[in-house]
Each structure stands twice: as structure tokens, then as C-alpha cells.
């Protein structure tokens, strides 16, 4: 029971303080899920993000379901998901009911500009961490570089790039194995 409550509260916090969708949640996931509760490793989170790109649904919700499932099975998946969507339900219902010009309020705009800069700083640390964990050899560096270039400079859907990267990873492993057994 305590575990489910922890799951709910932790994902509630992340839903309440993430501005700008799935990727912006990364610094919070590193702090809460990886460092504080040890529910997942950095590798796990990268796997979940990759799977989240090729499966339907919102990445933040998919990641919450994954982590919840690992901690407490299907019930855990449902509880973590309810946790991450609950703040949106509360906040948006209040805004939709009371302050329809919310995003035009000057104080909101100034606060958001500040928050955007904070997200930049948080993402800077998050990507450095991920880079250290995920890019360990020349080969993985090239996969990283090509994925970045294709994602940034072309309009190929990320879903296709994920499938490509998976195929490349698979082929390289097979080749490595053959070399290992023949020599």
C-alpha cells in the first residue's frame, strides 16, 4: 500500500512541476525515480523513451506506466498514470472554469519566461548525464551523432528513426558476435 502511495505522490509531483511535455520531465525523473526511489536506472529510462516514441500515447504517461508496472505490476502502472494526470485535471479544470484568459495574463507570461530558462539549465544537466550513460564507444557515438543530425535537420518522423536505430543496433550485435566466434 505504501509503495502505491509513493508511486502516486511521486508522479503527482512530476505532473505538477513539468512544463512542456515528455522531454522536460527528464530532470525530475532523474531526481525522483532514479536517485531517490531507485525504481529504474538511466538505461531503463532511455529504453522507455525509445519505446514511447514508437507506441501510441503521451510519452510522460507511457514512462509513468512503465515505472509503475516495474514497481507494482498492472495496479502500479495504473496508479502512476493516475498520479501524473491528476495535477492536469485539477489545474486545467480550474483555469477552464475561472480564468479563460490565463495564458495572456502578464504575470503568467513573465513567470513562464523564467521557467523556460530553468528548464534549459535542468535539461543541460539531464542530457550530460544521459550522454555519459548512453554513449560509451565510437560506434554508439556515431549512432548518437546521426540520430541527432537526422532528427534536427530532416523531417523524418522520430518513429522511423527509432526503428532504424533498433535495426542498426541489432545488426551490429550480430556482426560483433560472428567476429567473436570466428576469431
Amino acid at each position: 500500500m505504501k509503495k502505491l502511495w509513493d508511486l502516486f505522490i511521486t508522479w503527482f509531483k512530476m505532473g505538477a512541476f513539468t512544463f512542456g511535455g515528455g522531454y522536460a520531465m527528464l530532470p525530475m525523473i532523474q531526481k525522483e525515480v532514479i536517485e531517490k526511489h531507485h525504481w529504474a536506472t538511466e538505461d531503463d529510462i532511455m529504453d522507455y523513451y525509445a519505446i514511447g516514441q514508437v507506441t501510441p500515447g503521451i510519452i510522460a504517461v507511457n514512462t509513468a506506466t512503465f515505472v509503475g508496472y516495474d514497481v507494482a505490476g498492472v495496479i502500479g502502472g495504473i496508479v502512476a498514470t493516475l498520479g501524473v494526470i491528476a495535477p492536469s485535471l485539477i489545474i486545467i479544470s480550474i483555469i477552464a472554469g475561472l480564468i479563460t484568459n490565463f495564458s495572456e495574463l502578464e504575470i503568467v507570461q513573465h513567470a513562464l519566461k523564467g521557467i523556460q530558462v530553468a528548464v534549459c539549465v535542468l535539461m543541460f544537466h539531464a542530457i550530460l548525464n544521459l550522454f555519459k550513460k548512453g554513449v560509451k564507444s565510437i560506434l554508439t557515438f556515431f549512432i548518437f551523432l546521426f540520430s541527432f543530425l537526422l532528427a534536427y535537420f530532416t523531417s523524418i518522423p522520430t518513429m522511423i528513426l527509432v526503428i532504424l536505430a533498433g535495426v542498426v543496433g541489432y545488426v551490429l550485435t550480430i556482426l560483433n558476435k560472428k567476429e567473436g566466434t570466428s576469431s
Binding site: C120, G134, L150
Partner: peptide, 27 residues
């Protein structure tokens, strides 16, 4: 395992690409 060995560095690349857009917009 092999598939994920390819996916992990790729995900870092996708996230970097998203971060650059966020940086351009914010700074």
C-alpha cells in the same frame, strides 16, 4: 539487448535535438 544498444545513443540524439529547439526559443 542488441536493439536497445542501438536505441539508447539514438534517444540521446533525439533529446539533444529537442533541447536545441527549446534553447533557441528561450534564449
Amino acid at each position: 539487448q542488441g536493439i536497445f544498444n542501438g536505441l539508447r545513443p539514438a534517444v540521446v540524439g533525439f533529446i539533444l535535438s529537442a533541447i536545441i529547439s527549446i534553447y533557441l526559443n528561450s534564449l
